[in-house]
Amino acid sequence: MLKIGITGGIGVGKTVVCRMFALLGAPIYDSDARAKWLMRHDEALRQELIAAYGPQTFTKAGDLNRPYLSTIVFNDLERLEQLNSLVHPHVGNDFANWAATHADKPYVLKEAALMYESDAWKQMDQIITVYAPADVRIRRLLQRDPHRTEADIKAIMAKQLSEEERMARADHIIYNDDRQLLIPQVLKLHAHFSAITA
């Protein structure tokens, strides 16, 4: 079974691409969703977060106190890196366990915005980068997230790995630039991955 990573910056359309692969029968691991789940349900990780950020990290109901955590980490690069260094190993272990349950499939996909930053790429056999130009991404995000301004989006993009570096490190690139059709690109890669493991 191949482990395929899928990454790309905010607004490139990773989720849409993953849905297409899912329709073809590929199991999809959503790193962001699982990280949120693990922060709430993995007792070892909960204790690490409380030790690092204090008891206010969780509400009385046991939910992650996102507003509190955001005020601590998002304007402090060191604290953000600390948070990532606590969460990513748990996500890596969770992915390995999840992948083992899909050993009958030709390949699985792990969607992760921070594929390289978290070292998740080291668990992968191949990497797909989804690419879209900055102006297309900004337009999409302004429609999708009306609470964000163009300046907000540009600030997020500036903190992420550059598209050039992602593309240089990728084994495959899917162009979601509103010019090239997505479905033929996904079908071609699906056939490729399925043939490798046939």
Rank of each mutant, 00 (worst) to 15 (best):
M1T: 08
I4R: 08
I6L: 15
T7D: 07
I10D: 01
G11A: 07
T15F: 06
V16C: 01
V17Q: 00
V17P: 05
V17D: 02
G25W: 01
A26Q: 09
Y29S: 03
S31K: 03
S31M: 03
R34Q: 13
L38M: 12
L38F: 09
M39C: 08
H41D: 06
R46I: 00
R46N: 03
P55C: 00
T59R: 05
T59V: 07
A61C: 01
A61W: 03
A61K: 09
D63L: 07
L64A: 06
N65W: 00
P67Y: 01
Y68W: 06
S70K: 13
T71H: 14
N75L: 08
R79Q: 15
L80M: 15
L83Y: 11
L83V: 03
L86N: 05
L86C: 08
L86R: 05
L86W: 07
H88W: 14
A96H: 04
T101S: 12
H102C: 07
D104K: 10
V108T: 15
K110F: 06
A113L: 08
L114T: 12
M115V: 08
S118C: 08
S118D: 07
Q123S: 13
Q123Y: 02
M124H: 06
Q126E: 15
V130I: 13
V130T: 04
L141Y: 01
H147V: 12
R148V: 04
E150R: 15
I153W: 04
I153A: 10
I153D: 11
I156C: 11
L161E: 15
E163I: 04
R166S: 10
R169T: 11
A170C: 11
I173M: 09
N176V: 01
D177A: 00
D178T: 05
R179V: 06
R179N: 14
Q180E: 12
L182T: 02
Q185D: 02
Q185F: 02
L187Q: 12
L189Y: 07
T197H: 12
